[in-house]
Design a protein around this nucleic acid. Structure first.
Lengths: 345, 345
DNA sequence: TAGGGCCTGGACAACGTTGTCAGATGCGGG
DNA sequence: CCCGCATCTGACAACGTTGTCCAGGCCCTA
C-alpha cells in the first residue's frame, strides 16, 4: 500500500509536522502556523491548546520548508582560508556576532587557499540560498559570482579584494602598514633589510611587498635580490630563506616578516643566531610581548575587519547599501623591542 | 492580477528553476532533475541541450527544496564556546574536514559559555534539520536534546560530557593529564604547588582540579586552601590569584595553570617575579618553546579531538554506531624548562 | 512485418511550511 | 429581531525539488 505512508515512518525519524499538531489540538493547520510564528488573531484558549500539543509532540518547525516558502534563509556563509589560523578565529567570531544580532546563522568553510575549493564552497552555499556571503578570496577571478550577486546574494570580500569583478571589499592597509614597519627599521639605522612573504598572487602579500619596496625607495636604499624571498610559506623553506639572507654576500641586519606564520619561524631562526638581528612582523601574535626581545609588529585587528564586513553585508540586505565600496582599515605599529634593535654587522 | 506572478519578479531575485530550464531546453522537468543529479537515462544529446540551458540561465539547484524532499540536509552543526579561542580553531577545522569528506557543510555557533545560548543555538540548528550535531557543552543539562536525538539527529559531545543524558562523548584525559603534570612538578622537588583553574561546574576544570588533588595526595602532601583558586577566568583576577599564592603565608614554588588562558596570564606574572617559580600549563600554546624558560605543558590535540568526534558522528549517521560511547584521548606532557625549575624559597 | 523488451522522457504527487482569502462565529446597534 | 462588522479560523495553493509510474519509441528477433 504505497499510498499510506504512516507519519511514524517518515524519513525525519518521526518528527511531527504542523499537521500533526493541528490534528492533536483539534484546530486547523494555519492556526498552528500562527501560534508558532507568534502572529496575532488567535484566542488565548486556542493558543494554549496548540502550545500543549506542540510540547506533547515535541514539534519543531522545519526551517527547510519555511525557507522554501519565504525565500530567505536567515543564514550567511563565510569562506575563509583556514579556520585553524589564529588570524581567522577572531574574524569568524565577529562575523558570527553580527549575524546573530540579525538573527542569522553562520555557515563556515575553509578554502585551504585553493581557488577551486573556494568556488566549490561558494557555489554550495549559494545552492543553499544563503542570504549573503563573506569571502576571504583564495582565487583571483570571481566572475563566477556575478550571476549569484545579480540573483540577490549579498557579497562582501574581506582581507583581499575580489578578482575581476567589483564588489564590496574590506581590507587592512597592507601597503601602508608594511611601509611603516620597514620605515621603522630604517629609522633605527638599518639599511640591509630582508623581506620574507607569501606568494605575490595573494593580494595582501603583494601589497606588503610593495610597502617594503616603497619604504626602501623612500630612503634611497637599493634593494638587493638576495634580500627578498617570495612565495615561501612552509616553515622549512622560510627557515632556509631566512638563513640565506642572514649569511649572504651582504647579510641583512633586519628582517620584515610578511605574516604571522613567517614571523614565528623567523623568530626561531633568529633565536639561534649569535648576532642580534632586528625583526618586525606583520600581524600580531599572542605572547609576542613575552619573547626576548618582545616582537615588534604591524597589527591589524581581525575582529574589526570581520565586524565591518558583516555589517556591510547586512547593510546590503537591508537595501541601504547599493554601490560597492572599498573600505581600508588602518594598521598599528606596536613596538616591543625586536624592531628597535640597532644594526649589528 | 494576483494569479500571474511573473518568474522575473520572484522573491529569489529572478533565479531560474528547473521548470525554466526544462522550458528552455524543451524537455520535461524530471529530465532536468536527472541531468542535474547525474542520474542515468538521458541521451547525450538531451543532456547537452539541458546543460546548455542551465548555463545560459545560470541555474543553480535550490537545496532547500531538495532538503525538503529528501530529508537530509548534508550539513552538520558545531556548537562551541568561542571560535576565537585558539583551542577551538583547529578543532573546528578538523570537524570541517571530516564533514567535507562526507559531502557535508558545517554550521558553526559560539555559545559564549552560556547554557541558554547553547540551547538556543542547538534548537535553531535542529530546526534547520542538520543531520548531526557536535557540541562542546556550556550547560550541564541536555535533556532538552533527547527528543531531537530520538528524532534522528546524530549527536556527539566533545571536550566535556553531556549533562543528564547519555550520548557519545569524546574527551581528553583531563584528570590523568593534570595529575601527571602536577606529579612532574613534585618529582622536581616541589611541595607547595598552586592550582588556578576555571569554574568547577565546567567538567574539564573539575577534572583537572581532581588530577591536581590526586597527585598531591599520592605524594602525601596536604593541600593548603591558599594554594588553589577556582572559577577565576579573566586576566585581572587570575593575576591577583597568582600574586596571592606567591606571597601568602606558605608561598608556592610552582603553579599548575588549568588552561591556556590562565597560563598566559601566569606567565606574565611570573616574569615580573625575582624568585624563579616553576609552571606547568594545561593546553599547549604557540611559541611556548620560545619563552624563557620554555613553557612545560600538558598538551591535548584539539584537531584529533575534533576529528574523532566528527567521525563518530558520521558513524552514527551510517547506522554503524548505535550505542553511546565515551572516548577518552590521552594527553602528552611536553617539557620545555618551566616545569623543570627546582623549588626556590 | 509483427511482437516483445528495453530505454528515454514526462506527468504527477509529495515534502512541510506560509500567504491569501473566504467562511464562521459572536457581538452590538438599529 | 435582524443586520453588519470585527474577530478568529481553516481550506487551498504555492514554493522547487525528487520519486513513482506509465507512455511511447526504438531495436531486435522470429
Amino acid at each position: 500500500m504505497p499510498d499510506t505512508p504512516r507519519r511514524s515512518e517518515s524519513r525525519y525519524g518521526n518528527r511531527p509536522t504542523m499537521k500533526d499538531v493541528a490534528a492533536r489540538a483539534g484546530v486547523g493547520l494555519k492556526t498552528v502556523s500562527r501560534v508558532v510564528n507568534g502572529e496575532q488573531g488567535v484566542t488565548p484558549e486556542t493558543e494554549r491548546r496548540v502550545q500543549e500539543a506542540i510540547d506533547a509532540l515535541g514539534f519543531r518547525r522545519n526551517d527547510s520548508a519555511r525557507v522554501l516558502r519565504k525565500g530567505r534563509t536567515a543564514s550567511i556563509g563565510l569562506v575563509l582560508e583556514d579556520l585553524a589560523d589564529p588570524f581567522y578565529g577572531p574574524l569568524s567570531r565577529s562575523v558570527e556576532e553580527v549575524a546573530r544580532a540579525h538573527g542569522a546563522l553562520l555557515i563556515n568553510g575553509s578554502s585551504a587557499e585553493d581557488p577551486d575549493r573556494e568556488q566549490e564552497l561558494v557555489l554550495a552555499l549559494c545552492a543553499r540560498r544563503v542570504d549573503g556571503l563573506v569571502i576571504i578570496p583564495a582565487g583571483d577571478d570571481h566572475r563566477y559570482l556575478e550571476q549569484e550577486i545579480r540573483a540577490g546574494v549579498a557579497t562582501v570580500f574581506v582581507d583581499r579584494p575580489a578578482g575581476k569583478t567589483d564588489a564590496d571589499v574590506v581590507l587592512s592597509d597592507n601597503f601602508g602598514g608594511a611601509r611603516d614597519g620597514v620605515a621603522h627599521l630604517i629609522a633605527h639605522g638599518h639599511r640591509r633589510i630582508g623581506f620574507i612573504g607569501d606568494m605575490p598572487r595573494i593580494h595582501t602579500a603583494a601589497e606588503r611587498l610593495r610597502g617594503y619596496l616603497a619604504a626602501m625607495e623612500d630612503a634611497g636604499i637599493p634593494v638587493e635580490d638576495s634580500w627578498t624571498s617570495l612565495g615561501v610559506t612552509d616553515p622549512l623553506r622560510v627557515r632556509r630563506a631566512a638563513e640565506d639572507m642572514l649569511r649572504g654576500p651582504s647579510p641583512v641586519t633586519a628582517v620584515f616578516a610578511g605574516n604571522n606564520r613567517v614571523s614565528v619561524t623567523v623568530i626561531r631562526v633568529l633565536a639561534e643566531q649569535t648576532r642580534r638581528v632586528a625583526l618586525v612582523g606583520f600581524d600580531d601574535i599572542e605572547l609576542a610581548d613575552l619573547l626576548h626581545p618582545g616582537l615588534t609588529v604591524v597589527a591589524q585587528d581581525a575582529s574589526v575587519l570581520g565586524r565591518t564586513a558583516a555589517e556591510r553585508l547586512f547593510g546590503q540586505l537591508d537595501g541601504s547599501l547599493i554601490v560597492p565600496e572599498r573600505i581600508e582599515l588602518p594598521t598599528r605599529l606596536i613596538t616591543r623591542g625586536s624592531g628597535e634593535l640597532p644594526p649589528a654587522d
